[in-house]
């Protein structure tokens, strides 16, 4: 359990609440809200997973594997 990570997620939730309020006030289009929600929820979920110690394999590893299978790097 990583408390610092939790705290940081809380800070970012506060930040995004500000944004969401603005969206609601300005009646933002659905596409924008969808994209926004996707990014925020994705990062929050990832952050949560990291903070409870279940870190999924990272994009760095994926990219490395892809490049290795392509034979670009050894």
């Amino acid at each position: 359990m990583n408390n610092n990570m939790m705290l940081i997620l809380a800070i970012f939730i506060v930040l995004s609440i500000y944004d969401v309020r603005k969206f609601i006030r300005e009646k933002e289009s659905a596409r924008v809200i969808a994209a926004y929600a996707f990014i925020v929820v994705l990062s929050l979920v990832l952050g949560f997973l990291i903070s409870i110690g279940k870190r999924p394999s990272s994009p760095a590893e994926w990219i490395q594997e892809i490049l290795e299978t392509m034979g670009v790097i050894k």
Binding site: Y36, V40, S43, S58
Partner: peptide, 20 residues
């Protein structure tokens, strides 16, 4: 500006996630 905060959140999480 609508996307800065969300992308930044993602950046921060990604930066911690990316390397062990």
């Amino acid at each position: 500006r609508k996307f800065t905060t969300s992308l930044l959140t993602f950046c921060v999480v990604l930066s911690i996630w990316i390397y062990e």
